[in-house]
Amino acid sequence: MIETVTKIDLPVDESLRIVKNRIQAGKGKRISIVTGTHGDELEGQAVCFEVGKRLREQPGCLNGTVDIYPALNPLGIDSITRGIPGFDLDMNRIFPGSEDGAMTEYMASRIVGDIAGSDVCIDIHASNIFLREIPQARINTHTAQQLVPMAEFLNLDFVWVHAAATVLESTLAHSLNSAGTPTLVVEMGVGMRITRDYCRQLADGIFCLMHRMGIWTGEVIAPKKPIISTDGQVQFINAAASGIFIPQVEHTTQVCRGDYIGDIVSPLTGIVVDRILSPCDGMVFTLREYPVVDEGSLIARILEV
């Protein structure tokens, strides 16, 4: 059933609605699938579709509640805007929001209130338009003990346990985890695009987790065993110069120290301004997708092995 999480009147003849689809059968646990906080991240759209479609096809296999929230930032998705249009604000920096705050704060508060109480929440992100990511969960060290075992069912390639940062305290996941609703952040693919294989992979994983939670009796795959890593094993490659980045490796390739990752070139002069080599042995789990780089732009992240 389509339900309105919150509705707000905009200045001129339009209402903003944040909606969810509640699919319910029996008295089992509740999972919330959430995406679209960043309006330029679209991979989650295909995941929501895929999960909804399978639930429609096999309604008898569900014994619990699945809430699908495909668009926490509908104005952003509609206008190809990462943040909340009109506010120039990153929606993932305003949680938990407040009931009597500005419109954005109010929305945030209503969203948290609606999702809270789920037994699990999956918050799906799709990197940004610049970087392509392997399907991964991002978990901060404080919640690792509880969340890593859940993430292992999601059929992901990688679980990144990262240090807690103060600025991340205003994210949806932090607010929900603090309120006792276990929330897993998934990052995968690239902004403004759909990567079909990744979307199916995560949808498979969501059903594995639902099976584990006892709310899905349909067939599931055996989930992939993800690599679990901490910050210490992640190496960053940033552009040493501005230019056009031309990769020489495919995303997710295994590389050795010194392997050729790509070039930053100057189309004006025909000169390679920076030849990028791998600083270690490992897997390229993040790779630059958007060719134009400034000095400092992230080119790749390598998971050291």
């Binding site: 707000i8 009147d9 905009l10 200045p11 001129v12 009109g86 009597d100 705050g101 500005a102 419109m103 109010y106």
Partner: peptide
């Protein structure tokens, strides 16, 4: 000139 609901 145009204001949202609950805007400060």
């Amino acid at each position: 000139p145009l204001v949202y609901a609950n805007a400060s």
